[in-house]
Amino acid sequence: MRFWLLLGTAILFSICIPFMVPYYAMTIVIAALIWGLFAMSLDLLVGYTRLYSFGHVASYGLGAYSSALLILHFDIPVPITIFLATGIATLIAVPITWICTRTHGVSFAMLTLAFAQLGYAMLFRFKEFTGGSNGLPGITRPAGPFGLDFFQSKIGYYYMVLAFLIASFLICRNIVNSPFGKVLSGIRENEMKTQALGYNVRNYKWFVAIMSYMFGSLSGALFTPYAGFASPELFFWLISGTVLIMVIVGGSGTLIGPIIGGIFFILLEHELSEITQLWPLAFGTVFIMFVLFFPQGIWGIFTTISKKSKSNPSESGHAHS
């Protein structure tokens, strides 16, 4: 009950944002939502299964390039493009994640990183197709289907991104609270015991990795029609680190936390980069402070405070997630 009230308030607030901030600022707000979605997708792996992917940029880049190529070559209406691009990127993720989830810990991190780098290298290998270092400029937002064109405007696109974000959040929330999600929490806590209890943990890890890549590529697919281009930077390995920091600072294992983390960092970056070139320094400082003093993240602090103020221990187990 409390959850739906909170969610409703958040949605209402988000719907009002275009009326509250100047038009030019919507650009950064849209980016913030896309990154919130991207960080949330990684939380399925990091927060719920404790699989640290260092190559989550692969999902983002694949989604971004898929939607760019679909629009450039086939001029498919934007909403359909986004679904198709997500589907294509997810299909590519199926064999890759199968290999990655055979491993644990550091090997998993390194393998995901390696595959992301492979994708990055391929952008330059297949220049005719991907535009190489120039990327793919001139991505439009084709109208349709059914004559829909509201997303061609910036505000309209904002609402579409918002809708995708909310839907993704609700699906992910359902996943982590499902029987499947309970098994994930078992794998997170003690993988060997989970296997001894009769679960094929490899398949569970594989499936959650596919889900994580799917929502990651959705965020990437949303990015290109918004930005109007795709470039190799969308595949750059540093992004994997940035999004990992967003998850941890936002509060891993909460879904909502990483969304907040993603939004927070994009807004922070925007504000700071106007003041100084050294904004990554602030980034790092914030990250270290959180790891040292608030390992439960922004959302963790929030829930701790709200629990204390309510001081109703019987409800507390229910309150979050």
Partner: peptide, 26 residues
């Protein structure tokens, strides 16, 4: 050999779920 941060009932629920139909439902 337990799930240290989960509650007692969650520990056992994960165990009993393994034998149920639909234990994998996402």
């Amino acid at each position: 050999n337990l799930f240290p941060e989960l509650s007692v009932i969650e520990n056992i629920s994960i165990a009993s779920q393994a034998k149920l139909k639909g234990a994998w439902l996402p």
